[in-house]
Write a protein that binds this DNA or RNA. Structure first.
Lengths: 194, 194
DNA sequence: AGATGGCATAGACAGTGTCTACCAAGAAGG
DNA sequence: CCTTCTTGGTAGACACTGTCTATGCCATCT
């Protein structure tokens, strides 16, 4: 008897859910088509009915990661009454926290072979969050080219998440939590706090 | 008869050279152990004598990428008489140019499964360039915590390279070359030029 | 000459993604 | 009711992959 969380929707939803579980517990290299099918209790040919190729299944799993991240973002900024700078700090901390807590998922989400093909709708997924970022940056730093600053800031956060995960920044900056680094990046792009 | 470039040194050097060629021409997914061995003209078991595992061979190829990048960096800063800001601009442009020209190699160099294991000596490879960066940042912005700013700046450049390769930043910033973005990142971390 | 290495070959093994043929059960239509 | 068609899954094959092991060649040293 299937568990309550997967009793309902067909195989398609179950495959994605199994994939999400698998990538968070075992890492991204555990996401083979056959292993996902095995854990979903179906044969290795079954997923093909819903995902013509392995990469499309991976993309669907990664999309869940983006949705999760977006939901956390919405929850983090709350009613949006805080100052732009505070909201950006909260968003940055939330993102870095997500990347470090869900390493496997974060790695999957930004895999080149998924992002470069159009299967994963990166355009539709990332444009709204980029718009939000641009808006906040524009209000925090009127007069600057908000798109450029927001783009650089986003790249900065992403780079910190990456370099931090494999320990480069701990060694070189000597810090053991990412807060000072995040503050440095925000100070740089928004001007020092005050 | 082997060509002049591979006449000499044993199989080990040839395997690495074939790998470098392969990753720049065909991409990172072409770097299977057996394909490298095939192009080197040996059986699939031969590499094992020099690289106990596939990942160690990949690490050796990636290390070549880091060495190449370091050489370009040394050539770019020249005699080091330019201002710190100018040197950082040159280095940043050089790095982004490298990342976009040698996409496959850049992707290989920063693969999680290679970086997280100690096979690729990321510590020894990246520490000197980080020291250089920290020094330049310290001179360009006295009074700031040079390690933190250099770390954030490095992450920023890396993030720009990544986001730019899969087109996110073109769409959102509307730019078709990365110079404005690079300038934004440098302005942010070093203060506006002038 | 005979033994000892270093080096490469070739085959096996488990595992992968994709493709194809098959099949079971239900719906639709006469 | 009986026949057809469609839906959704199974099972096996195929060409690959990385790793392991047994084998053999060939030069060098005793």
């Amino acid at each position: 008897m299937p568990s309550a969380s997967e009793q309902d929707g067909g195989l398609r939803a179950r495959l994605i859910e199994v994939g999400v579980d698998l990538v968070t517990t075992e890492g991204v290299q555990a996401l083979s088509l056959r292993e996902i099918a095995r854990r979903a209790g179906v044969s290795h040919g079954a997923p093909r009915r819903y995902f013509p190729t392995h990469r499309e299944l991976l993309s669907a799993i990664a999309r869940r990661g983006f949705e999760n991240l977006a939901a956390r973002g919405a929850a983090a900024i709350g009613d949006g009454t805080a100052s732009p700078r505070e909201q950006l700090t909260t968003l940055g901390r939330m993102y870095l926290d997500f990347a470090l807590t869900h390493r496997g998922m974060h790695e999957l989400m930004f895999r080149h072979d998924l992002l470069e093909s159009n299967e994963l709708g990166l355009r539709e997924t990332s444009l709204p969050i980029f718009a939000l970022l641009t808006d906040l940056v524009g209000r925090a730093r009127p007069g600057a080219d908000a798109r450029l600053v927001a783009g650089s800031l986003l790249a900065n956060l992403y780079g910190i998440a990456q370099l931090w995960t494999w320990g480069s920044l701990q060694l070189t900056t000597g810090a053991d939590d990412f807060a000072p680094l995040l503050r440095t990046a925000l100070d740089a792009h928004l001007g020092p706090e005050g």
